[in-house]
């Protein structure tokens, strides 16, 4: 039962992380490798705020959202947009995000060192499980992670389908030049998408230490998994990350339990290989991901 709950929680957090990657790829055509570090920043916002202001990390969810949205927005404006404006390919922009990822890794580690050396906080390894509440017999993190992911996915879906802003975002994803000609401000829309994606990553980062150990490399180490979520879910539909998060979360936590009960406990350390396998299988057999597959079946 414990691993079932773990899997559910982990799924929601993966979905939140993948949501941002999918959003950025859809609207600006960039695979953002630095997204993992934005998640880590969310965790450090939670750490800093809870340490200095001594409230529950839940209290700082909006703060994490805002900080990470700002960081992601700045990454877009300062790093991506100047190079994109010169007509760089999506490959080159991927390299740009790697460069940004290196810078943010450095910044996060410098900050963590600073917290440790100056304020003597355990900033290299932290867990907030003790702050969590219980609701209907389960940890609060389960409910809040799903609430965040559900609210975000549903509201973004409604926005895409029923508002002019959403229409413009969909148009931008298909024919950027035509969208400009029709009056859409591509830079502003892209900026908005990056901010929203960063905010979602911030929520995931802020919630992550409620259940799982966090360290300065937590987001970096999960980036391949996030890519698996985003690509497996497919970038065509925004519900992709939610479903892919469920599949991968369960495969990684619940699935490995199942396999180890058949084969033996020796396989447990290799649970991190599961997302890679899913990613490679997806790219090979289902290149449009789940949502592309579903869309194609419906015609």
């Amino acid at each position: 039962m414990a691993s079932f709950i773990d899997a559910l929680t982990y799924s929601a957090l993966l979905g939140l992380m993948g949501f941002g990657l999918t959003l950025i790829r859809r609207t600006t055509g960039v695979w953002n490798v630095a997204h993992g570090e934005v998640v880590t920043i969310g965790a450090y916002v939670a750490l800093t705020a809870t340490s200095f202001l001594s409230h529950s990390p839940y209290f700082f969810l909006p703060l994490a959202f805002i900080v990470c949205a700002a960081v992601s927005g700045i990454i877009f404006l300062a790093g991506i947009e100047p190079i994109r404006a010169k007509g760089a390919s999506s490959m080159l922009l991927l390299v740009v995000t790697i460069a940004i990822s290196l810078i943010t890794i450095a910044a996060i580690n410098i900050y963590a060192d600073y917290l440790q050396n100056v304020f003597h906080l355990a900033s290299k390894n932290f867990l907030f499980a003790r702050f969590d509440f219980t609701l209907w017999g389960q940890m609060g993190i389960l409910w809040s992670a799903w609430a965040a992911l559900g609210a975000l996915t549903v509201s973004y879906y409604l926005m895409l389908q029923h508002t002019r802003l959403g229409l413009a975002l969909r148009a931008l994803a298909e024919q950027p030049a035509l969208a400009i000609v029709m009056g859409a401000n591509v830079k502003a829309l892209s900026f908005l998408s990056w901010c929203l994606a960063g905010g979602a990553a911030g929520l995931a980062g802020c919630l992550f230490p409620m259940r799982f150990q966090c360290h300065p490399g937590v987001g970096t180490s999960m980036i391949a998994t996030m890519f698996a979520v985003s690509i497996f879910g497919g970038i065509e539909k925004m519900y992709g990350p939610l479903f892919a998060g469920l599949v991968l979360g369960f495969a990684q936590i619940y699935g490995i339990d199942l396999i180890s009960s058949w084969i033996g406990p020796g396989v447990i350390p290799f649970k991190d290989l599961i997302p890679m396998i899913v990613l490679l299988l997806t790219l090979q057999f289902l290149p449009e991901g789940l949502s592309g597959f579903v869309g194609r079946r419906r015609g």
Binding site: G79, P82, I83, A88, L92, V95, V96, I98, A99, I100, S101, L102, I103, T104, I105, A106, A107, N109, I110
Partner: peptide, 14 residues
């Protein structure tokens, strides 16, 4: 070193 690598890469690409 990370900081330097990242910055150099961005500047070169720019």
């Amino acid at each position: 070193q990370f900081l330097l690598m990242g910055l150099v890469l961005i500047l070169v690409l720019n």
